[in-house]
């Protein structure tokens, strides 16, 4: 009489990875997050873009005739202009990251969806990459897209190719800064989202960023303390990429290392927190 093994039989075939798995996660995340309040935030974040657009128009029309006096230097369209624009968008960038990113993993944990995700042929990198792409998409709408549009407006209004010849590299710097910011700050919010609940992740995200910056301010006499501030590190790297004077006295190499360290720690924590529950070995 045959004796049957009544235990759970795992899949014994080969698990083939789906190269587009991360895209499905990203697409779903982007669609789910496209809500009224996000649109309001995006509209709100377009005001500085409008102001900068007017600035470009003014500078191309009356900038050279020195009618603006001392303001001319401040209004000049140069790498500092684009760096200033991105700096001005920082708060909304952080807000978008905090509000969208806080729930990305926390909600999956809350509704026990991680088990369902990882029961499919989905790797850790697919999952994190997909979630990161959601953050990249929304943050691009308030940083990269308007900044590149401003660059194009300036090109169209400048009348000659001098600006393009001198500053052709600006769009690449904008893209690089956006990618670094999303990687570092997106990694941080995803890590918090994987560790605590939705609201706490958003609040802790701001707390960590502000706390590290306050330490830098309080101990401003020791320049290297600034390395502990993620915001200051990103500012330093931004200044290097735009070829502008550095806002802080610490080494930009130190800033690069500090940012890499943050990304490394975030990935390590994410790796530990995002584990599929193994039912049968």
């Amino acid at each position: 009489m045959p004796i049957y093994d009544q235990a759970y039989k795992p899949w014994e075939g080969q698990l083939l990875p789906n190269p587009k798995a991360w895209w499905v996660i990203a697409k779903t995340g982007i669609r789910l997050m496209w809500q009224k309040w996000v649109i309001v935030l995006l509209v709100f974040s377009s005001f500085p873009f409008a102001v900068r657009g007017v600035q470009i128009y003014l500078m191309n029309r009356v900038g050279d005739s020195s009618q603006l006096g001392d303001f001319t230097d401040k209004l000049e369209i140069n790498p500092g202009f684009f760096e200033g624009f991105l700096k001005g968008q920082t708060f909304l960038f952080l807000l978008i990251l905090a509000i969208i990113g806080a729930g990305l993993i926390a909600n999956d944990r809350r509704f026990k969806a991680l088990q369902i995700y990882f029961s499919k042929p989905l790797s850790f990198w697919d999952y994190v990459g997909g979630k990161m792409l959601v953050l990249a998409f929304y943050s691009a709408l308030i940083t990269v897209v308007p900044a590149i549009l401003l660059f194009i407006i300036q090109l169209l209004l400048s009348g000659d190719s001098t600006f393009l010849v001198d500053y052709y590299w600006i769009p690449f710097s904008i893209l690089a800064i956006w990618m670094i910011s999303v990687l570092v700050l997106g990694g941080l919010i995803l890590t918090l989202s994987a560790s605590v609940n939705n609201s706490a992740a958003a609040i802790l995200f701001f707390a960590i960023l502000m706390f590290s910056d306050i330490i830098r301010k309080i101990l401003s006499r020791i320049p290297d303390v600034g390395l502990a501030s993620i915001g200051a590190d990103i500012q330093q790297v931004t200044a290097v990429l735009f070829g502008n004077p550095r806002p802080h006295d610490f080494s930009p190499y130190g800033a690069w290392i500090a940012l890499l360290l943050v990304v490394g720690i975030c990935l390590l924590i994410l790796r530990l927190r995002l584990r599929p529950t193994e039912v049968v070995k």
């Binding site: 502000m210 706390f211 306050i214 301010k217 309080i218 101990l219 006499r221 020791i222």
Partner: peptide, 20 residues
């Protein structure tokens, strides 16, 4: 760096407590 700890209290109370 000529920083005395007790002189940091006003800044810590203002930036860390009041603003954070």
């Amino acid at each position: 760096h000529d920083i005395e700890l007790f002189r940091l209290y006003p800044q810590i109370s203002f930036f860390v407590y009041l603003h954070l």
